[in-house]
Design a protein around this nucleic acid. Structure first.
Length: 222
DNA sequence: ACCCAGGGTCATA
DNA sequence: TATGACCATGGG
């Protein structure tokens, strides 16, 4: 159940409020349709969002931002459009697989009718969709209350003394147990943690100016 | 020139 | 189970 220890002294909700006030809303996830959001989640793997935007623009300009188009597109054309997002050969195949999967499951309507656990299992069966990508799709495309854990989440909390479960599922459960079950909160909190990681952890290893440090003091290593 | 981004898969030990 | 190689573009 609720884990004892340091996490009890540093509840996550105040951190969320503080980050939101310090950094403002992050406006995630840009995208006009659930499919576009899911596609973005796939394309942004280990890739700067800027590059993903260009790839999505290419698809939009070509009129291919729907699952029907991606599912039937010639692979080589798809590759060229996705080129700016990196790993473009893998990603073209995986995008096509995702689109076919999407249609095979009855499109957005069909997928929306599935329970979260079922939807998650089905997503994870696709090659190229691991836990973080699956959870991003669940949270941002289908508005399911699933906390998205990424390397920044682990690094930031670990740096500030949280004893964390070593595996993805464990940390996800930890986060969900510590927070109110709220989709908008999960969406915003994950985005804020990414913002902190990008702007402070790397730029300033000693946590100077970091809003997390305002609350919890400078962290240790990691 | 080097580092790494809103990860995941696969081969090897 | 646990590393390491690999995927590839673009900005700092």
């Amino acid at each position: 159940m609720a884990a004892p220890g340091k996490s009890g002294n540093r509840p996550l909700l105040p951190l969320y409020r503080h980050l939101l006030q310090a950094l403002g809303p992050q406006h995630w996830w840009p995208g006009d349709s659930a499919f576009e959001i899911a596609l973005g989640a796939l394309l942004t793997q280990n890739t700067a969002w800027r590059n993903v935007e260009q790839a999505l623009r290419n698809l939009r300009n070509r009129g291919w931002l729907q699952p029907e188009a991606v599912a039937t597109a010639p692979l080589e054309e798809l590759e060229q459009l996705l080129r700016p997002s990196g790993y473009y050969r893998q990603k073209a195949r995986r995008a096509r697989d995702l689109a076919r999967w999407w249609l095979a499951h009855g499109g957005e309507e069909g997928l929306r009718s599935l329970p979260t656990e079922t939807l998650r299992r089905e997503l994870l069966r696709l090659k190229g969709i691991g836990p973080e990508t699956a959870d991003s799709i669940l949270l941002y495309a289908f508005h399911r209350p699933v906390f998205v854990v990424d390397a920044y989440t682990r690094r930031i909390l670990s740096r500030h003394g949280f004893p964390l479960p070593p595996d993805y599922e464990g940390l996800r459960k930890f986060m969900e147990d510590q927070l109110p079950r709220s989709v908008p909160l999960y969406q915003e909190f994950h985005a804020l943690l990414v913002a902190v990681g990008k702007h402070f952890c790397r730029r300033s290893p000693r946590c100077t100016g970091c809003p997390v440090a305002d609350l919890w003091g400078p962290g240790q290593g990691v």
